[in-house]
Amino acid sequence: MGSPAATKLAERLAQYRYNAADRNMRRSSSPLLTIIPKQEEDDVPTSTTPKRKRESGSSTGGSPAIRRSVTPKIKKNRVYAGPETYAHLKAVPDLLQPGLTVVFCGINPSITSSTKQAPYSHPSNRFWKALHGGGFTDRLYDPQECIWLPERFNIGMTNLVHRPTAEQAELSAKEMRRGSLELVQKIMQHRPRVVCFVGKKIWDEFEFVIKRSAKPAKIPWTDLDETQTPELAIEAKPTTALPKSRPKAPRTPFQWDQPRPYRVVHSPAANLCENTLFWVVPSTSGLVRVQTPDDNQQLPEQIEHFAALKRTIEALQNDQIDYDMFKEVDPEGVAATVALISE
C-alpha cells in the first residue's frame, strides 16, 4: 500500500479522468478550471465586416497595397435656368459709343464676369490673350481694364443676353433670338464697322432671326483674298448614304476666315461708317474646347482667328471690300420676326 501522499495524488488526478459518456460536456470539479462546452461549426459567429482584399504583390516590395474602387465623377449637364435662379447677380454694362471699329458680342455674362463687372473675367477664358495676340491691344489687358478699350482702341463690348448664368446651356434659344432685335437696334444707334460674335452658337441664333427678312445681295459673293487662311475652315464630315437612299450633299465648311454674308446699312453721316459687317470667332470660354483639349494648342489657333479679323478690318478701312455682295439686314423684318417668337 502506497504512502498517504501518493494516495491523495491519485485521487486528485482521478477528477480529470476522461468520461466517454459525457463527451460533449466536460466539467472539472476544481474551482480553478472550467471547460466550456464545445461549439458546433454552425454556432461559430461570423464577422459582418468584410475583409479587405490585398494585392498579391507591391511595386515597392513592402506590404501589399489595398485595392480600392474609385467611382469616376460625372459632370451633370446643365439645363435651362429661369431668371429667378440668378436674380441676385448683376448684368455687365455695355461698352458702346458711336463710331467703334469693332464690337465684340458675347452670349451672356458668366458668374465671374458679373461679380467683377467685367466681360470675359473667368481665369480660363482666353479672350484677352487672343485679343492681344491678334494685334488689337498693345499689351495684355486685365478684364477690369476693359473701360479703356473704347477710348484707346475703338473696341466695344456687349452681349446677346444680359442676364448672367453659370453656363450658356441655362439660356433658352427663344431669349437669345429675342435679344437679336436689341442688338440690331444697338448697331443702328452706334454704327460700328464690325460686330464680332465670340462663339458660333451666338451667331447661329442671331442669323436665325435676320436671314428671314434679309434683302438679297446685289452681286455674287467672293471670298476675300486678304484674309484667306484655309486651315481655319472646319472640314465637312463625309456622310454615308443608306442603301437605296439619295446621297446627301456634303455640308459646307464654316469659314472662320471670312465675314458673314450680311450687313446693316446706315444713312450717310460724316465720319461714320455706312455699313456694319459681321464676323465670328470660336468661343474663348474655358468650358468650350476647340478641336483639341490642349490649351497650349488652342490659344495660337484663337490668336489666328483674331488676327484674321484684324486684317479684314484693315481691308474695310482701305475700301478694299465691295459691300454689294452682302445681304442687307432689314430692321423692320427683324422686329416682325422677333414679335412672332412666343414668350
Rank of each mutant, 00 (worst) to 15 (best):
H162M: 13
I187K: 02
A166C: 08
Y141M: 11
C196Q: 05
G133Q: 12
D138K: 13
F153S: 15
V198G: 06
G134F: 10
Y141G: 10
Q185P: 05
A166K: 04
P164H: 08
A173M: 12
P192H: 08
V161R: 01
K200S: 08
P164K: 03
L140T: 12
S180G: 04
L140M: 15
Q168T: 14
M176C: 12
E182P: 00
I155C: 10
V195K: 00
K200L: 09
I155W: 03
V184P: 00
T165S: 05
V161L: 06
W148T: 15
C146Q: 13
E167M: 02
C196Y: 00
Q185A: 13
M176Y: 04
I187M: 02
V198R: 03
F153N: 14
C146S: 15
E170V: 02
V161M: 02
R163E: 15
P192L: 14
A166H: 06
G133F: 01
T165C: 07
Q185Y: 00
G199R: 04
G134P: 09
L181C: 02
T165M: 01
E167A: 05
H162K: 13
F153M: 13
C196G: 05
T158D: 02
V195Y: 02
T137G: 06
F197C: 02
K186N: 01
L181R: 00
G156W: 03
K186V: 01
L181G: 00
E167T: 14
W148H: 10
